[in-house]
Nucleic acid binder design. Structure first.
Lengths: 191, 191
DNA sequence: TTCCCCAGTTGAACTTGTTCAACTCTTTTG
DNA sequence: CAAAAGAGTTGAACAAGTTCAACTGGGGAA
């Protein structure tokens, strides 16, 4: 049953009863996306928060110069959303695109709010999820400042071997914040 | 009364009753730090979460090469902590230092946990605080990738004129992730 | 007050990373 | 299957940013 992946994920953060897990899960609806399909596009409002069951997504933004900037990749067990747009119903800065045929569980804003109201432990759950997320964004910033591009590249492929093997070098480069030509030269000089 | 600053801050995120605000505030103890004094040093365990009432702090880390890397500056209304170290009682990667004589409100881990238990709305409060924090870390990463150093510098001083005016250029450079010599050249060429 | 330390500036040489253009090799797509 | 589009590589010229060293000036401590 596909909801088991979600339930296992939630239990990692907070101790939840079976009844609670069932209730939370019941608010999420399964959906499938084909390769290259978008769950969210820049400028539109983020209506859904997603949890990846299978497949792979890229969360990215186009900057003023038209360059793509990848915030993160999401495979099984990762969340997908533009938090700001989802919570405040403002136009999103982000694009969320499936890199391969994928399965997700979705919850809309009203249901998420209802869930927060209905089950206070969900507040704790997401307090902890966001708290952990914040820590990893801080660490990523420090790495960006203190590592060279080469070090960042090898850190990435060593930390996420399963994700990086699915990706094109172009996509990895936009995650690392370097040009794909330069990534090609990094790979040539030390591999 | 110094607790008013905290109360006003909390009310911005969640609608709290006077009784709740009083109760939450009662868990925080005032403390003063002299210029250059540390609230936390790398390697030690973060025992206190802080809220700045007055003054200015720098949150930074030393990387392997011994370079300082500034995560953020905190003036009035900002939180101070190493979330990871505070929650999991693991050795901290961060240093938190007062840049001038400062006043803070502190809460220790046990009291924070007790507060979460006692008043479920505190979970919502910090869920929202962390959620907003996450959004700003994401935006900072995108700026780091899509802006040049010059653009990042002017964005910083325009966004935080009150903070940046208190800082030495060396500290701003370590926040931007560039050498202080190069910052000096940026300021010369376009001011 | 004096001394010294430290922040900031500047220049020169160097390293890192970008841009553009040409080429190859797969992968889609009609 | 053929054509076209996209992913990766390479080189050369360039731009961005670092490093090191020397110098300047101001502020704090004795």
């Amino acid at each position: 049953m596909s909801y088991d992946i979600l339930k296992q994920h939630l239990k990692k953060h907070v101790d939840l009863s079976t009844a609670d897990l069932d209730l939370i899960s019941s608010y999420f609806k399964p959906a499938s996306l084909k390769k290259k399909e978008f769950l969210l596009t820049q400028g539109s409002i983020c209506k859904m928060e997603g949890f990846v069951l299978d497949g792979c997504f890229r969360v990215f933004t186009f900057d003023k110069k038209g360059n793509e900037n990848t915030l993160y990749f999401a495979t099984k067990d990762w969340w997908l959303m533009d938090i700001d747009s989802f919570m405040n119903q403002t136009p999103s800065d982000l694009n969320i695109q499936a890199l391969e045929d994928s399965k997700v569980l979705l919850i809309d804003r009203q249901d998420k709010m209802a869930l927060y109201e209905l089950l206070p432990i969900v507040e704790k759950l997401f307090r902890i999820i966001f708290q952990k997320g914040l820590v990893s964004w801080q660490r990523r910033l420090v790495r960006n400042h203190s590592f060279t591009s080469k070090e960042r590249y090898f850190h990435f492929i060593q930390t996420y071997p399963d994700i990086s093997s699915k990706l094109m070098d172009k996509q990895i480069a936009s995650y690392l914040g370097i040009s794909h030509e330069f990534l090609s030269k990094i790979k040539k000089n030390k591999k």
